Computed example of a mutant assay.
Amino acid sequence: MKNQTRDDLNILLYLDILIKRRWIIIGTVIPVFIITIIYLLNVSPIYLATATILPPANLEAPTGVSQLVQAYIGTAVPKNINTPVLYGEILASRTVNVNILNQEFWSNKVGAKIKLIDILVIGENDSTKRYELGYENLRGQIQVSLDQKTLITTLSVKSSESILASDIAKALIEQLNVFNRKGISRKAKENRIFIQERLVDTDSLLRSFEDELRQFREFNKRIENSPELQIELGRKLREVRIQEEIFITLKKEFEITRIEEIKSIPTINVLNEPVPPLKKHWPMRRKITYLVSLYATFMGVALAFIIEFLSKKYEFESFKMRFKKLYILLKNDLISILYFLKKEQLN
Rank of each mutant, 00 (worst) to 15 (best):
L250A: 08
K109Y: 05
D16I: 04
T5P: 02
I37M: 03
L294A: 14
I114P: 01
G234F: 11
F33C: 13
E317T: 08
R235Y: 15
D211W: 06
L172Q: 07
P45Q: 04
D167C: 03
K221S: 14
S159M: 05
W106G: 07
G64K: 05
F254E: 10
D8H: 12
T257I: 05
Q243C: 08
S66Y: 05
F194I: 03
K2Q: 12
E218T: 13
I37Y: 03
L346N: 14
L41F: 09
S44T: 09
I30D: 12
K287N: 05
Q103R: 15
R286T: 04
N220S: 02
S185A: 07
Q143E: 14
E232M: 15
N108S: 12
S156N: 10
E60G: 11
Q141F: 12
L271G: 01
S166H: 08
L213R: 14
I11G: 04
L278V: 15
I328W: 10
L116A: 09
R192N: 10
S107W: 02
R217L: 13
P283G: 00
E239L: 15
I53L: 11
V43T: 09
L338I: 14
Y87M: 03
F105T: 07
L116R: 01
K331N: 04
Y47L: 05
F216E: 03
R235K: 13
S293P: 00
